[in-house]
């Protein structure tokens, strides 16, 4: 059985270590916060906050307190606020230990495409290009194939890039792969998924 969204998030949470400052992207990466357990993790929201808390109780939403996905959130007793220039200073400056992001395509050399489909989806990169350029460890959480069953882990990305050679680890519904010299290396498979199945559904070189 491949992992579902929550199981992928749970697996991604294992990448986080005590004391880390972490940025979580929109979608499945947001769910990772539910699985950090007792680990002392500080979440950064690139619109200007360290120490992001859970969603507010109904009736306690504050329009001045949102995350990078524009959702209402809360603060914690460790929270600090700052402006966007300082927020990206700490991102580009390498102070954030890990970023967990979604992806449309990843190439075997670690190239990432996750911001644009020409002629179709023109929303923008937001903070993704800065994050992948500056953050120490970039973990991608994504479906292994698209809806038509075609690989999303490719020899070369076909979509406009977000960054070149930036991805360290990929967590898909089928397993966990690392970007290494010469291609991708399977480091773990989801329960009941074989390495052969991953190879069959991956265009990138598996080493």
């Amino acid at each position: 059985m491949p992992w579902d969204r929550n199981q992928m998030a749970e697996r991604a949470a294992q990448e986080l270590e005590d004391g880390m400052y972490v940025n979580l992207g929109i979608g499945i990466p947001t769910l990772v916060a539910n699985y950090v357990g007792d680990k002392d993790i500080t979440l950064q929201s690139e619109n200007g906050m360290l120490g992001m808390g859970p969603f507010p109780f109904e009736g306690e939403e504050d329009p001045d307190l949102i995350n990078a996905g524009k959702q209402t959130i809360t603060e914690l007793n460790r929270t600090s606020y700052f402006d966007s220039a300082m927020s990206f200073a700490m991102i580009r400056g390498g102070k954030i230990a890990a970023a967990i992001l979604g992806a449309m395509e990843v190439a075997e050399n670690g190239d990432l495409a996750n911001w644009m489909i020409p002629g179709k989806l023109v929303k923008g990169m937001g903070g993704a290009m800065d994050l992948v350029a500056g953050v120490e460890k970039v973990v991608v959480v994504m479906d292994h194939t698209n809806k038509a069953g075609e690989p999303k882990l490719l020899k070369e990305c076909t979509l406009p890039l977000t960054g070149t050679g930036v991805v360290d680890r990929i967590i898909t519904d089928l397993g966990v792969l690392d970007v290494v010299e010469g291609g991708l290396k399977i480091v773990e498979t989801a329960p009941g998924v074989t390495e052969d199945e991953i190879r069959e559904k991956t265009e990138a070189t598996i080493v």
Binding site: F57, E58, E60, P63, T72
Partner: peptide, 15 residues
């Protein structure tokens, strides 16, 4: 007005 783009909340019993 301070309009909220995406109101997201949790239920009290989850706390």
């Amino acid at each position: 007005e301070k309009r909220i783009e995406k109101v997201t909340t949790r239920k009290r019993e989850e706390a």
